[in-house]
Design a protein around this nucleic acid. Structure first.
Length: 430
RNA sequence: GUGAUUGUAGCUCAGUUGGUUAGAGCGCCAGGUUGUGGCCCUGGAGGCCGGGGGUUCGAGUCCCCUCAUUCACCCCA
């Protein structure tokens, strides 16, 4: 064990795993593009107030999970981003994107930081991809965002996911419901657990999705937000469901689904997987019409978005054996050099092959031919190209197909030609 | 922040009621004749048994502390 180890809740992604990450990222890039979303990259840290305003000071994220610090003695407090939405909206407002066009469709892939106790599927540094559709208040926008998210899951081949939806109504609806909830819970004040008591004051809706069985029992009899929705809110939600039905996207309606962030309104959704253990949410999102105003915008910017946890996604893919289909990035040629005397010549040939766009591996440690062959086999090279003294003198090289074990003797030009014919060369810079 | 769990070679783990030089499999390295892999065989390197203190003639094995890990609660991706 080395003296230093990675910080609690962080981990290294080694090359074998990076392949998996890129595979996922490629699909995200492709599909987001297919739906007309363009990538945005924003800073990993922001002024702390952005998150306090944007996410809500009553949330756990802001209350106890942020990594905040002062960049200099007189500086304002800054915070490592614990989520993306607030930052994306900030960027859009700061850059006046809405004066260029009323609608912006953005997606992102990036790392987030929350100071939580690590456990299965939860780390202090983790990654999400997500999309934000800004400037559209139609239920079509949420449907669009959900559809993209589910399309990604589908393309990756994930099975056994459950999409749950709820509607939180608009501000009026929630205000009236909030009062109704407080009135209903008040007589049971003594039965509430610590967290719920606090929520009763600050954000009674959050009592609804408590995991505490005792609370759930209590909640079962509580009034439903659904019954407090005005007609237009109800229509909005029904329209979302209509779109999902039309696209054959399966879902469940869950009246207790509230979501932890204050900025949501109308449709909220969450996707869970039974493969994940206790932290079973792989993605979620919803509509957040009030966020822009909250951040000081002078105009309304209705918005919808989702975020998906990449580490959790990869856990599911691993468990479902979905990595087998990822193509291996193995070399085409392993150049086997007889001995030290030919090492420099070997390097020269390797360089020529690479210039020709042929993925070539060579042993820089001058090990025995046997060792080189074992290595060639281990890295799954397609061919071994032998450079011995005979080849050096005659200019005729032995090329061995490592799958069929067939071996032929060719000039270097013929080797290049042959590999090009085989489609083994790739586009390159020259 | 709370609770529980585990901590022996790079990895996965054995290590009996505390008793001599701490083991296996995989991986790694090198060989198995003269320039060639996968299988097989042989050999080798690699462990202050997480760290500190204590009990004991003697501790990987018992006790305490500490650090780390993992899982769960809270909450979220």
């Amino acid at each position: 064990m080395s003296q230093y180890q990675s910080v609690k809740g962080t981990r290294d992604i080694l090359p074998e795993e990076v392949v998996q990450w890129k595979y996922v990222e490629d699909i995200v890039n492709t599909l987001a593009g297919l739906y007309g979303f363009r990538e945005i990259r924003i800073p990993v840290f922001e002024y702390t107030e952005l998150f306090q305003r944007g996410i809500g000071s009553t949330t756990d994220i802001v209350g106890k999970e942020m990594y905040s610090f002062q960049p200099d003695p007189n500086g304002r407090s800054v915070t490592l981003r614990p989520e993306m939405t607030a930052g994306v909206m900030r960027a859009a407002l700061q850059k006046n994107l809405f004066s260029l066009a009323p609608v912006h469709k953005l997606f992102y892939i990036g790392e987030l930081f929350r100071k939580e106790r690590p456990q299965a599927g939860r780390q202090r540094q983790f990654s999400q991809f997500g999309a934000e559709l800004l400037g559209v208040s139609s239920p079509a926008a949420v449907a669009e965002v959900i559809t993209l998210m589910m399309h990604v899951f589908d393309s990756l081949g994930l099975g056994g996911l459950k999409l749950r939806l709820n509607t939180l109504g608009d501000t009026d609806d929630r205000l009236r419901y909030r009062e109704a909830l407080q009135a209903w819970f008040s007589p049971f004040h003594n039965l509430l657990d610590e967290a719920s008591k606090e929520r009763l004051e600050k954000n009674p809706l959050r009592i609804l999705d408590s995991k505490n069985p005792a609370m759930q029992e209590l909640v079962a009899g509580a009034p439903r937000l659904y019954d407090y929705l005005k007609a237009s809110s109800l229509d909005d939600f029904r329209k979302v469901l209509f779109y999902l039905d039309e696209r054959s996207i399966k879902y469940e309606i869950d009246h207790r689904l509230v979501r932890g962030l204050d900025y949501y309104c109308h449709t909220a959704f969450e996707v869970t997987s039974s493969e994940l253990g206790a932290q079973d949410a792989i993605g979620g999102g919803g509509r957040y019409d009030a966020l822009a105003r909250e951040l000081g915008s002078s105009v309304d910017v209705p918005a919808s978005g989702f975020a998906v946890g990449i580490e959790r996604l990869l856990i599911i893919m691993e468990k479902q054996g979905l990595f087998a289909t990822i193509p291996q990035d193995s070399p085409t040629v392993y150049l086997v050099v007889q001995d030290q005397a030919l090492a420099d010549h070997g390097l020269s040939i390797a360089w020529q092959l690479r210039r020709a766009g042929i993925k070539t591996e060579i042993d820089l440690a001058s090990r025995s031919m046997k060792a080189q062959m074992r290595e060639a086999n281990k890295v799954k090279a397609s061919y071994a190209l032998f450079l011995g003294h005979l080849e050096y003198e005659t200019g005729q090289y032995s090329l061995k197909n490592l799958v069929t074990s067939e071996q032929t003797t060719l000039s270097l030009e013929a080797v290049l030609h042959f590999l090009h014919e085989q489609g083994q060369s790739k586009p390159h810079f020259s």
